[in-house]
Design a protein around this nucleic acid. Structure first.
Length: 595
RNA sequence: GGGGUGGUAGCUCAAUUUUGGUUAGAGCACCGGCCUGUCACGUCGGAGGUUACGAGUUCAAGCCUCGUCCAUCCCGCCA
């Protein structure tokens, strides 16, 4: 069997040629006499024509064709009659008069409509995943996978061109504390012992730097056993990178170039040659997030100083307790209904806000509010001027502990932008977030945790502060790349001084013995001449999805899992034979839930 | 672990003003007839349902109550 062309390439200049095509029946239109079939493959669609006058036997076979039959045809390319061209498809000027038809395979009626355009594909995710092999036939989802493939090609080209080596690292690793829950793999030959699947190749890539590899990259599968979201899968792919003898600026400079050379080229846009920087504290204050969406303004302002002078009990007590009051001017939102404001109040409640204070700015910039009696006119005007509100705006205020006030306000900012349609899907706003805190206090753990990971180096000027035990104000040499409010990558300069590393472990509450057991080999390696090094990792699926303006990464992964980390198609995870468990020295111990 | 939303034909959804009322509808898809230039072909007809599962309230439950399961979005979590 020989295809002379694919289904997306025949044009006017091919008229008169005898061609052979193979593909799937996308749609069949039977006009009683003549039958049209849209033949589809990865490359496109071509209309083929069965005419009873030209070839009655073939026409008779064509009568049996149904959607998703796999066929092979031979015929002559012809111009379509005047006025019958279809400008919606690239092959729309021509069609193929079929002289020979072979049904290579029949198909049951597909449970999902493969030929529907993307907007029409509203089946729920689980159903699509059950028939994923059919779902993947849809042209728009094939386009996603092909785009990712093209992107990966450009990624490889970029790193090879810049002196990076592609080195594979193990998938069977040692389980380590800190970070996400590990996926575990039992060892048969080592009874009772387990491997962990890598959450990322973090330690291996640092060891490669110690080994003198200088510049490393890998397209690496990573595994995290945590609850899932639309943009989080249990296994996902990182573009993982590490470089020796670099500082923060060197790494960010390299990836400014990466954004231009790879993302810009594949998606055909021109990013700024140098992506802007914003330090973490500024991001948290102005945007209430460490991944600000900078496609629109709606900046948040701190009004604690004004609030604490007022007679409004809520504001006063929050500030007195060390909390903050943050405000925002919702431009042109003065006509929000009471219901909308109530909904927004409930919305910010999900992020811990106890309430939402709102004020209208009317003609002559007069501030009107139900809680007006607690404030002087000067205070109301000060709120207005601080948040930058004008006639026609609505002001919102949230009071609470600093982190709560910031994040609740940040979410409110995003929600207002969504309601007002400010998230322009065509814009691409990149920003490096820098100077993250080294540590973050965990209420649940009752101790400080590494905000990035425990191998991250503090800012050189904050090292003494850290060594003296001031964890709160110590910032890290860490950086995240954010695009349109999505964290698409992140990294840090690593600690290369074993003494500093030991100190960080101690500050994180790990004893010398624990470190020895969990990280012994790693700490030892640093005693033999580790170069200064740093790197970062991009979430491959998230980069592609975000550049395509999609929130969910599932349509960019051929076989994703659903929210319960299972696959409806192959029913995995599943039970295994007792013999397998015995081999692994494992017995199942689950509480009786059913029966 | 917690919260929101949802589960009705193969798919996407509907089932009204006051807690319920007789035979659970539509579009797409499917099957059959007609139709020789359509391209989301048209047209006529047909088939298709344990209303997720279980219990309860009631003369009567798709609708009300409770439980279970599943999906999805979010919080926690995800260095």
């Amino acid at each position: 069997m020989k295809r002379t062309h694919n289904c997306g390439e025949l044009r006017k200049q091919d008229v008169g040629k005898i061609v052979s095509l193979a593909g799937w029946v996308d749609r069949r239109r039977d006009l009683g006499g003549v039958i049209f079939v849209d033949l589809r493959d990865k490359y496109g669609k071509t209309q083929v024509v069965f005419n009873p006058d030209r070839n009655p036997e073939v026409h008779k076979i064509a009568d049996k064709l149904r959607n998703e039959f796999v066929i092979y045809i031979t015929g002559e390319v012809q111009n379509r009659p005047e006025g019958m061209q279809n400008d919606k498809i690239s092959t729309g000027d021509i069609d193929v008069k079929v002289d020979n038809l072979q049904i290579l395979n029949e198909s049951l009626t597909p449970p999902i409509a493969i030929n529907d355009p993307k907007e029409e594909c509203k089946e729920n995710d689980d159903f699509r995943l059950t028939y994923r092999y059919l779902d993947l036939r849809r042209p728009w989802i094939q386009k996603n996978l092909m785009l990712k493939s093209r992107f990966l090609k450009a990624v490889y080209e970029f790193f090879y061109a810049n002196g990076f080596e592609n080195v594979e690292t193990p998938v069977l690793c040692k389980s380590t504390p800190e970070g996400a829950r590990d996926y575990l793999v039992p060892s048969r030959v080592n009874p009772g012992k387990f491997y962990a699947l890598p959450q990322s190749p973090q330690q291996y890539k640092q060891l490669l730097m110690i080994a003198g590899m200088d510049r490393y990259f890998q397209i690496a599968k990573c595994f995290r056993d945590e609850d899932l979201r639309a943009d989080r899968q249990p296994e996902f792919t990182q573009i993982d990178v590490e470089m020796s003898f670099v500082n923060q600026e060197d790494v960010m400079e390299m990836f400014d170039k990466f954004v231009t050379d790879v993302m810009g080229k594949v998606w055909n846009f021109t990013p700024p040659r140098h992506i802007r920087h914003m330090d973490w504290h500024e991001a948290m204050l102005k945007y209430g997030s460490d991944k600000p969406d900078l496609r629109f303004d709606l900046e948040i302002h701190d009004v604690s100083d004004i609030a604490k002078e007022s007679n409004f009990g809520v504001f006063k007590s929050v500030v007195a307790a060390g909390g903050k009051v943050r405000g925002i001017a919702a431009k042109g939102c003065i006509d929000f209904t009471r219901k909308q404001i109530d909904d927004l109040t409930a919305f910010v409640g999900r992020y811990g806000a106890k309430g939402l204070v709102w004020m209208r700015v009317k003609e002559d910039d007069v501030v009107e509010t139900q809680v007006g009696k607690f404030f002087t006119t000067e205070q109301l005007n000060a709120f207005r001027d601080t948040v930058g509100a004008k006639n026609g705006d609505l002001m919102f205020f949230i009071a609470g502990p600093e982190k709560t006030a910031a994040t609740a306000m940040g979410q409110l900012r995003l929600e207002i932008a969504r309601m007002k349609g400010l998230k322009d899907p065509k814009r691409r706003e990149f920003v490096w977030i820098t100077e993250f805190p080294m540590f973050e206090y965990s209420e649940t753990e009752g101790r400080y945790m590494a905000m990035h990971h425990p191998f991250t180096a503090p800012l050189p000027e904050h090292l003494d502060m850290m060594l003296s035990g001031n964890l709160k104000d110590c910032n890290a040499q860490a950086y995240d790349l954010v695009l349109n409010g999505v964290e698409i990558g992140g990294g840090s300069i690593r600690i290369h001084d074993p003494k500093v590393q030991e100190k960080v472990f101690r500050l994180l509450g790990l004893s010398e013995e624990q470190v020895k057991e969990k990280f012994g080999f790693f700490v030892d390696a640093f005693k033999y001449g580790a170069p200064p090094h740093g790197g970062l990792a991009f979430g491959l699926d998230r980069v592609v999805a975000t550049l395509e303006g999609e929130d969910s990464i599932r349509d960019f992964i051929a076989f994703p899992k659903n929210t319960s980390a299972s696959s409806p198609m192959d029913q995995c995870p599943s039970d295994v034979d007792l013999a397998q468990l015995n081999d692994l020295h494992i017995s199942i111990n689950i509480a009786d839930k059913k029966k």
